[in-house]
């Protein structure tokens, strides 16, 4: 047995099929490049699996092809180009930035920006001052001003609670 227990466990964890164990890699670099590429390239048949995960015949063919390309001395990029020339950019799990994939790259950035903006707005300023709905209410504005620390806090907390409850009641009556 050429494999240590550890190596076998690693192979099992990666979901590598038995035929991969039997490949005669020329060097350990070639071996690691092979495993890196079968994890990076996507199976065209079974859409959400990479070549190492997939049991589809086409995935097996592509693994064999990949192995012989490595054997022939192709570089990683040449192999990626070889695959995309035949199966399109679909086979790359890391899609290049083109006008077709622009949305893919920009949407997460946009969402990050929007959520950042929302968090900034929610935490940045006291609500009483920014919410226009409450601005017409002069006495509540005062509470807001107290909260914002413009005036020294002169009321005790329970007194403030009572004040707010009263305001809410009068606010109800307004409508």
């Amino acid at each position: 047995m050429g494999f240590s227990l550890n190596a076998n466990a690693q192979v099992a964890a990666q979901g590598v099929s038995k035929s991969d164990e039997l490949r005669a890699f020329g060097s350990t670099t070639m071996r690691s490049r092979y495993y890196a590429l079968i994890n990076e390239l996507r199976c065209p048949k079974c859409q959400n699996q990479n070549l190492s995960d997939s049991d589809a015949p086409i995935a097996e063919d592509l693994r064999n092809e990949l192995f012989s390309l490595l054997d022939e001395g192709y570089s990683d990029q040449e192999i990626r180009d070889f695959m995309t020339a035949r199966y399109g950019t679909f086979v790359l799990y890391q899609p290049p930035l083109t006008r077709f994939t622009l949305a893919l790259w920009l949407v997460p950035l946009g969402l990050l920006l929007i959520s950042g903006l929302i968090i900034w707005r929610m935490t940045g300023k006291p609500r009483g001052l920014t919410d226009p709905n409450f601005e017409h209410h002069a006495s509540l504005q005062k509470v807001g001003a107290v909260n914002a620390g413009i005036e020294p806090i002169s009321m005790k907390v329970d007194a403030l609670d009572r004040h707010i409850a009263e305001l809410e009641r009068t606010h109800e009556h307004d409508k």
Binding site: P44, K45, I58, D61, L62, E65, R86, Y87, G88
Partner: peptide, 12 residues
């Protein structure tokens, strides 16, 4: 062997 298939991008 599916060699022409591979060059054509056949996946099924």
């Amino acid at each position: 062997k599916g060699s022409l298939g591979l060059d054509l991008g056949v996946y099924g």
